[in-house]
């Protein structure tokens, strides 16, 4: 009984506290960089698409709202199309977590309401930004042991030049 009354009293006292609500459209809150908002595709420091079309984001997506198709030029994989249906997206960030190349990133932008659902289907040209996003330095192809234009075989980080098969040296 006294507990109930105390609760009532304490709740009543809240009338004199400061309100926590942020008056959103007039007053924008600070969103940390790792806020899970609109999804983008970033580029590597050399300005090339980071997405290598490995499909891991698509398979990680719990609502299956990511679809892409692999294409390839001179050993470099990239998505021929990359589509996110934001009318299904739950902004869980699993795709970003799954991405091995830091290509797909969630951003602090969440103001993406539309009046018509088809407008929430984002294609690659809607997703691809011209910067590196949260990870300024990473370039997958500098690490991965596949040759791409501008990086021959054996020129990745921690790689020796290709073996000369005709050598008899041990």
């Amino acid at each position: 009984m006294s507990g109930t009354l105390r609760t009532l009293f304490l709740t009543f006292l809240h009338a004199f506290r400061r309100r926590e609500t942020v008056q959103y459209p007039e007053e924008k809150p600070y969103l940390p960089p790792r806020y899970r908002g609109r999804i983008i595709l970033s580029r590597d420091p050399d300005g090339e698409e980071r997405c290598v079309s490995c499909n891991l984001c698509a398979v990680a997506c719990p609502v299956d709202c990511i679809s892409l198709q692999k294409a390839e030029t001179e050993g470099r994989w990239y998505p021929e199309y990359f589509r996110i249906n934001f009318s299904r997206c739950i902004f869980c960030g699993f795709c970003e977590e799954a991405c091995p190349t830091y290509a797909i990133q969630l951003t602090p932008d969440f103001e993406m309401s539309e009046y018509s659902r088809p407008n929430l289907v984002y294609e690659k040209e809607d997703l691809l930004i011209s910067g590196t996003g949260k990870y300024p330095d990473y370039n997958f192809y500098r690490v991965a042991g596949v040759p791409v234009p501008g990086k021959e075989r054996g020129e990745s980080e921690h790689e020796r030049p290709p073996v000369d098969l005709h050598s008899l040296l041990p």
Partner: peptide, 8 residues
């Protein structure tokens, strides 16, 4: 309710 829950 808002008043007692520190909101508007």
């Amino acid at each position: 309710l808002g008043l007692w829950q520190d909101r508007y």
